[in-house]
């Protein structure tokens, strides 16, 4: 029993288990959560305490105890219906207020587009800059994420900001936050989306405004050779499904792929040259290697700049 009681108290400090609140909205959620925790612990102690007390106090003494024939008590019954009702309505209203804040998007928010797809997050800024997995935003500036999915339903979740929103294919959904402190925050996908659902992670990198400006302006591949550009793009976008050795992960391993004979599901064959690699990236369903599911890979059409695509091809050619 003591272990449980301790667990109760630790749950009361549950807030401390939650990641540190990174936005004002998150702090409001935490205060509501504390209020809910306190009510819950009190009502649990009342009900369970009462239960244990009655159970011990009214233990059966003799075989033919006479028990009181109490059928009901209107005032008591009214009280324990009305008080929970009032408490629930208070909690409902409070929750609604905070939900209002979460759903009212500031007009001057910095808009970033999020594309969820099977097992990775892609971000695109108004300036055309694209990144994968890591989302960089300035601190203290309201950011509005306009999100959609390329295949199935995903869900963009930042625990430290207490916000979450499903990313539904075929339409746009939105989420907003204003980070208060710089730092790196964890991003999860919380709507079940298949094999690598648990690998669909991202990090939110909150930096100062100046850092953000310089980061936005510079070219991430400045001074890198084509193969090094390819290696950087590969590590961001492809490692979820492909290995650099020849081990199969979700897709085939790429070690020694270049100039190798490829046997396709429809019986045809081809040598893996530059065009084959390019087509496999932009139109994966066209030639599916034997033993792999038909619509396993999603097309990267329109998501890779020309230098990134050429870099990828060069990099894959170097893999032995």
């Amino acid at each position: 029993m003591l272990a449980l009681f301790y667990a109760f108290i630790s749950q009361a400090h549950g807030r401390s288990f939650m990641p540190i609140a990174g936005t004002k909205v998150a702090q409001k959620v935490d205060s509501l959560y504390s209020f809910l925790l306190v009510i819950s612990v009190i009502s649990c102690v009342l009900v369970i305490g009462g239960l244990i007390y009655f159970a011990l106090k009214y233990r059966r003494k003799t075989a033919d105890d006479k028990t009181a024939y109490i059928s009901h008590n209107n005032t008591l019954e009214f009280l324990w219906s009305f008080i929970p009702f009032v408490l629930f309505i208070v909690v409902f209203a409070w929750g609604w207020l905070i939900y209002r804040d979460m759903r009212s998007f500031p007009d001057d928010a910095l808009e970033i587009h999020v594309l969820g797809k099977k097992w990775n997050w892609d971000y695109q800024y108004k300036s055309g800059k694209r990144t994968t997995a890591e989302l960089t935003v300035p601190v203290g500036v309201p950011v509005k994420l306009i999100m959609t999915s390329q295949d199935v339903i995903h869900s963009f979740f930042i625990p430290s900001f207490r916000i979450k929103q499903d990313v539904v294919p075929g339409r746009y959904t939105a989420l907003w936050f204003e980070a208060e402190k710089q730092g790196r925050y964890q991003i999860f996908c919380t709507e079940y989306c298949g094999d690598q659902h648990s690998a669909m992670l991202g990090t939110l990198n909150v930096v100062s405004l100046e850092e953000y400006e310089t980061w936005l302006g510079d070219n991430p591949y400045k001074g890198l050779s084509l193969a090094e550009v390819g290696q950087k793009v590969f590590s961001q976008k492809c490692t979820v499904c492909h290995n650099v050795n020849d081990q199969r992960k979700v897709g085939p391993g790429f070690a020694g792929l270049y100039q190798k004979q490829r046997q396709f599901a429809d019986g045809s064959q081809a040598v893996a040259d530059e065009n084959y690699i390019r087509d496999s990236i932009l139109m994966p369903q066209k030639q599916v290697v034997e033993g792999y599911p038909p619509n396993g890979m999603i097309s990267f059409q329109g998501q890779l700049a020309e230098n990134e695509l050429l870099g990828l091809i060069e990099y894959i050619k170097t893999l032995k």
């Binding site: 759903r103 587009h113 695109q124 306009i146 959609t148 746009y172 959904t173 939105a174």
Partner: peptide, 8 residues
């Protein structure tokens, strides 16, 4: 439903 639009 508030239908968001892409602003790209």
């Amino acid at each position: 439903r508030v239908l968001e639009q892409s602003t790209l």
